[in-house]
Design a protein around this nucleic acid. Sequence first.
DNA 1: ACTGATATTAGTACCAAGTACTAATATCGG
DNA 2: CCGATATTAGTACTTGGTACTAATATCAGT
Lengths: 194, 194
Amino acid sequence: MKRSKQERQQKLIETIKANPFITDEDLASHFTVSVQTIRLDRLELSIPELRERIKHVASKSFEDEVRSLPLNEVIGEMVDIELDQRAISIFDVKSEHVFMRNSIARGHHLFAQANSLAVAVINDELALTVTSTLSFVKPVKLGDRVIAKAIVVSKDEEKNRTFVEVTSSVENEVVFSGQFEMFRTNAQSKGEMI
Amino acid sequence: MKRSKQERQQKLIETIKANPFITDEDLASHFTVSVQTIRLDRLELSIPELRERIKHVASKSFEDEVRSLPLNEVIGEMVDIELDQRAISIFDVKSEHVFMRNSIARGHHLFAQANSLAVAVINDELALTVTSTLSFVKPVKLGDRVIAKAIVVSKDEEKNRTFVEVTSSVENEVVFSGQFEMFRTNAQSKGEMI
DNA sequence: ACTGATATTAGTACCAAGTACTAATATCGG
DNA sequence: CCGATATTAGTACTTGGTACTAATATCAGT
């Protein structure tokens, strides 16, 4: 039934990963070894104790929660903005943004960054994306820092339209570009989009 | 400096809410009362102890994580698919998808649903969005159920391109449409997007 | 079969952050 | 000043550990 130490430790890693809430005692009975053995295993594998594991999971999600609340309106971090002119935001590609199997960022995050930047650069109460044309130039990978630059290219004051061009790059290489036609108004709340 | 018990308890609730990771000891010195007082307060307010609070935060996020892992690939719920032909998915607009101030769905969620559906309908190892043109027809509100239909309209076998048209509607009214030019290949792993 | 190394188990003291409970003081309102 | 409420102190006990020592098991190789 049981096999080598290495095998057990491998399973241990998986088991704890699948359920970080498991105690040493439960692990011991699960692998039918003593609690001390489990503790030695954790020591060797430098797996922290239950409380530390839980704390880690909790603090990770707590930070995310805190971060996603006030900054909700812009995807990525705004570093520069001149209303009605240009805006720049950076977005770090983390594991939650990529496909599992190839670590490539999912397109909607790039779109989200670009689009929310286009919304932000508009100096009005209300900004609404009407149409957009996107070009995904180059795959973006886990760990990449994407810098999006939005530039207001033209306006049609009569129709309340603003045209914004967004170019995103990673290490000075263009990875994405999009043209956004935005509807703008300072009316109270006819409805807003994006 | 200090005020009534009620006032302290009110602050206590806020403090713990803002930072669930705080110990009774830290709370005690923060409010310059004894640890026992803090414990009586928690008892009266039925605020659980630190470890239980942390566990709660962690398990909440852990469930979310588990849920988002396998369903990671498609945004929304796939209800029908005929590879290389058409696909349908539904997406319920929840509070995390909308702007706080007007309860209107943020565009990238509509894009994400449409785009992941376009990826899914492609019957190949690899599907990559090259370009897309989007039209946000009508604002989508909190609580709306968005039904996206993807239809493969044409193919360019030589260039490995597939053109997909996605139309999203709420209660039979079109709210969004997009044309997606997809790159496809069954090569192992040249890179993938979206 | 014996030896040495590695692995496992047992046991103790100690820690953090509590609960549960009892008992002694403070403080305040009338 | 008295009684009620609030606060503080203190003890025993709990969980899920760490850190450490020491005793066994198990296995591999000669």
